[in-house]
């Protein structure tokens, strides 16, 4: 019951984030919504592991948290510099 309430709240919030990711006017809204969706996915995996009595799901949640962060940073770097390698112009641009 406890875990059902928590996972229901997380699922509803994921639905809101998904609507914002589909309807966001700028690309930053979409990145924000996708990042939020990924964080909610980490929480949902952790809650589902406890819900089904298998807390080993936390390994998957841990890996997903790391991949989500790296993916967000990579997408932002791509949309700022238009490349995933070193920044092309300037020497003080490499702080993202």
């Amino acid at each position: 019951m406890l875990f059902a309430v928590a996972s229901l709240a997380v699922a509803v919030s994921m639905l809101f984030a998904l609507i914002r990711a589909l309807a966001g006017p700028s690309v930053f809204d979409r990145i924000l919504a996708v990042n939020m969706f990924g964080t909610k996915t980490v929480l949902l995996i952790a809650i589902a592991g406890f819900f089904m009595g298998r807390p080993e799901f936390l390994d998957i949640a841990l890996a997903y948290a790391l991949i989500n962060f790296i993916g967000t940073i990579a997408v932002m770097k791509f949309f700022r510099y238009r490349t995933l390698g070193l920044p092309r112009g300037g020497e003080d641009l490499g702080d993202l």
Partner: peptide, 11 residues
Amino acid sequence: SGFMLVGGLGV
């Protein structure tokens, strides 16, 4: 859950 729903609604 309250923070989660409020934040999702805010987004």
